[in-house]
Amino acid sequence: MTAEGEPSITDEEGPGLDDATAMRLLRDGTLDVAGRLVEATNMTLYCSIRNGAHVAACVYKPVRGERPLWDFPDGTLAAREVAAYEVAAATGWRIVPPTVYRDGPLGPGMVQLWIDTDPETDLLALVRSRHPALRRMAVFDAVVNNADRKGGHLLPLRDGHIYGVDHGVCFAADDKLRTVLWQWRGKPLPREAVTVLVNLEHEIERGRLGRRLRELLAPAEVEATWERVRRLLDTGIHPYPSEDWPAIPWPPI
């Protein structure tokens, strides 16, 4: 994405932070807005964040900058982004960069660690691939009911890891899965995924994850998340696209 004003933040430490340190920095650091990502639908600000010796770049999406949507309650997108991080953290797959909900210069919102991607990656080729990280992401998206998994929401790193971002339209109680990652539809879930899903089912029903999701989402949305996990375990396969709505978001990249 392009930021107005072409901000420059020296960020030698940010990419090397472990997740626990990054979370403390995001929660407690001082935010300094450097520019705006002009291609984003909702207000998305590129910032530096500093706490003592730690400094990194991050993205800040204030609630007041969210555009109303007909199918999601107003002012809930930032919390959904944080909920997606919580689910991703529970999987152990590190799909979503460290993300918190906190106050900022324009009020409360989502703050997420900035990720520098590999500029040489061909996103079209990546989306069509069967990269193991994308298969994990396909399972994750089915759990969180991601209504907008575009190719541009994939952040490939030079070391081969792939992050996913922009999870503001997840966790609807009604099925809304729209994604470019349908290459495993109908295929049996890998053993690794089944193990992760069994843990998610327990964590949502009676563990810390369920308590955290109930802080961020409506009760019906938490219940629907548990039901999607249970459905994946019952069927044992990656879901098929729905016949009732477009299965791929537009634009796909």
Rank of each mutant, 00 (worst) to 15 (best):
Q183W: 00
E86P: 02
R191N: 08
W93T: 08
T21R: 15
I253Y: 11
Y46P: 05
F140Y: 14
G236P: 09
S129H: 05
A193M: 05
A89F: 01
E66D: 09
L197V: 02
D148V: 05
N199P: 00
P219D: 05
A173R: 14
V222E: 10
L17D: 03
D122N: 15
G29W: 01
I115H: 06
V55A: 14
V222P: 09
L123T: 10
E6M: 11
S129T: 09
L232G: 07
N146F: 09
H161L: 04
N145M: 09
A193Q: 07
V222F: 06
L157W: 00
A125Q: 15
L31A: 02
R67N: 11
G160W: 02
I95A: 14
L154I: 04
S242A: 13
L157Y: 01
K187E: 15
C170R: 11
E13Q: 15
R130Q: 12
M23G: 01
R130G: 10
K150D: 10
G35N: 04
R214H: 15
G92R: 10
R24D: 13
S8L: 12
Y101N: 01
L200N: 02
G107K: 04
P251T: 09
D19T: 10
W245P: 00
C47M: 09
G186K: 01
H167C: 08
P239Q: 10
L217N: 03
R214I: 00
A56I: 04
E81T: 02
Y240K: 11
L181C: 03
L69Y: 13
P97H: 03
H202P: 00
V229I: 11
L154E: 04
L155Q: 03
A172H: 15
P132Y: 05
T10N: 12
I9V: 14
V55M: 13
E6Y: 11
V96R: 05
E243R: 14
W226Q: 14
L209T: 03
W114L: 12
T44V: 11
R136P: 00
V111W: 09
R178V: 05
N199R: 15
A20R: 13
V127Y: 07
W70G: 14
C47Q: 08
H54G: 08
C47E: 09
D71L: 08
P73D: 12
